[in-house]
Design a protein around this nucleic acid. Structure first.
Lengths: 172, 172
DNA sequence: TGTGTCATGTAACTGGTTACATGATTCT
DNA sequence: AGAATCATGTAACCAGTTACATGACACA
């Protein structure tokens, strides 16, 4: 149930409406914790009812601006440091690799090649993002830079692994 | 809906009952595509109804042994090579890193240190697994070795990233 | 005046989780 | 006789997705 905490996290930086938050999810959390519009609005309602956030201003078109409450901040901190067993992960790619013997080796090769090319593409995007952003030493820069670095290292690892795997494919 | 294809994949290797498949999920797919007992049985029912698998033998205690059909094999291959946009990922760890400025730097440090230790632990387990298995050149060895290698490279990358991140933490 | 953006919400569905429920067979 | 394992299934729930529905406001 981390959508809830994503919202608390975003609202801990500054107040905002459902619409604002929705855009933030699209812009900055897309690769970490994506959320849909409908989810955002429903969860905001629940958070408000639970007293973790509150409406602090209203605007045109029924706009409701929410701000995090003290209880919300406490809950955010609690969640941040809470120990937890890593949630099970579902990896569609590795699942397919596991059963790759069901197709011809040349098809398997094509599959892995496509995979590698896709992650290389992604790496380029992240590289560009890294160059674009003006990194300061504010909190967002520090922690945002960390998640970006994770993405970069991840894509590099992934591409290298794919090459390694391709080389190990059985002959046709 | 890859549980369906996990089952087809497992049954493409050899026939088995719900119970057998359940154990295979626990043993070999736990880190790739975990499934619960109830899920396995319900999905087997649906697969049988769709004609992708069929009951080929019965045994004591109401045991039903399923085998993959030709349609099932075709569906498995279709799924394996089907192009698809990478499914969105939810990363609880990176989400927490994003909002880490909500806690004190020393708590952030502790968080990252724990994270690193946990992945190092995990790496050790995978290393041990690699040594234990007798790798041949059969399909399972080739593709199983690939997924294991992915896990190894992933945990190494993860631990190195954590160290990098710890070093970049603001002073207390 | 019409297009794009801002803004809210609900309903139905899908896939995965937890909990419940039952009982036969095998091994010690 | 009792414990462990084999074996099946259902029901309620939770989180995330897709689709539907509506409409005000800003600006060109």
């Amino acid at each position: 149930m981390s959508l809830r905490h994503s919202l608390l996290g975003l609202l801990s930086e500054e107040p905002g409406s459902g619409w604002d938050l929705m855009r933030k999810f699209e812009l900055s959390l897309e690769n970490i914790w994506p959320a849909t519009q409908s989810q955002v609005y429903t969860e905001l309602g629940k958070l408000a009812e639970a007293g973790l956030i509150a409406v602090t201003a209203t605007g045109p078109r029924g706009r409701k601006e929410y701000a995090i409450t003290d209880e919300g901040r406490a809950e955010l901190r609690r969640w941040l440091l809470e120990p937890r067993r890593p949630r099970r992960q579902f990896d569609d790619l590795l699942l397919r690799v596991t059963f790759l013997n069901a197709v011809e080796p040349n098809q398997a090769r094509e599959f892995l090649t496509k995979t590698r090319d896709a992650v290389l593409e992604r790496e380029k995007e992240l590289e560009k993002l890294k160059e674009t952003v003006n990194w300061g030493d504010d909190a967002l820069s520090v922690y945002g830079r960390m998640t970006l670095e994770y993405g970069l290292r991840y894509t590099r690892m992934h591409a290298e692994w794919a090459d390694w795997a391709i080389a190990r494919l059985p002959e046709e």
